[in-house]
């Protein structure tokens, strides 16, 4: 996993729970925490951090990932405003993940393992098919909620099927209400 993700999570944690919490998380997870955005780090370090956070906060990993994802969006916007400017709304942002966002990520971070999404669209829904060994569907849901905040759109997100329930893939359904 790319260092940039660790950096963004650090920012979120520092702002939401205070700067010392990040240090506590690192100690609890047994990590030294020197992450640079350009570096690549084992996915397992990310899992250990989330597990540590779950213990420390007394909250489920799913809810934490959802929250981190949602709060990460303003940080990401600050770093990569161009990605946001190219799409006029949540729907077009989501649909451009494969064609714009991830190709751009590849340009910035060579070797980044970006997941590929499948899309099914209806008039008021977009369903993302997600299939990644990292199983970070909740983080993805959090990102989507954060984007809805950014674009000031009211949506509901649900997952009819999920890899955590032994399905081969996750479906994340965004519905505009």
């Amino acid at each position: 996993m790319k260092g940039i993700i660790f950096n963004v999570v650090e920012d979120v944690v520092a702002i939401e729970w205070g700067p010392s919490v990040w240090d506590k998380l690192l100690s609890q997870a047994g990590l030294d925490g020197a992450y640079t955005s350009l570096g690549s780090y084992p996915d397992e370090q990310f899992s250990r951090l989330i597990s540590a956070a779950s213990e420390l906060m007394g909250d489920s990993k799913a809810r934490l990932l959802l929250r981190i994802g949602r709060l990460a969006i303003p940080k990401l916007y600050k770093r990569f405003p161009k990605f946001f400017d190219q799409a006029a709304n949540l729907r077009s942002f989501v649909l451009s993940i494969n064609t714009i966002i991830h190709p751009e990520v590849h340009k910035l971070y060579t070797g980044a393992g970006c997941p590929h999404f499948h899309f099914v669209e209806t008039e008021n829904t977009v369903t993302l098919g997600y299939n990644s060994p990292r199983k970070l569907c909740y983080l993805a849901q959090g990102f989507i909620l954060g984007l809805a905040d950014y674009y000031d759109e009211t949506i509901s997100v649900r997952q009819p099927i999920c890899m955590h329930d032994d399905h081969p893939m996750c479906q994340i359904e965004i519905a505009w209400v």
Binding site: T36, S37, R79
Partner: peptide, 18 residues
């Protein structure tokens, strides 16, 4: 300073990649 260095490097790497 680290963030700035990273973003300079990111831009450079991006250009190189392109």
């Amino acid at each position: 300073a680290r963030r700035e260095a990273e973003s300079i490097a990111e831009l450079g790497l991006r250009e190189l990649y392109i």
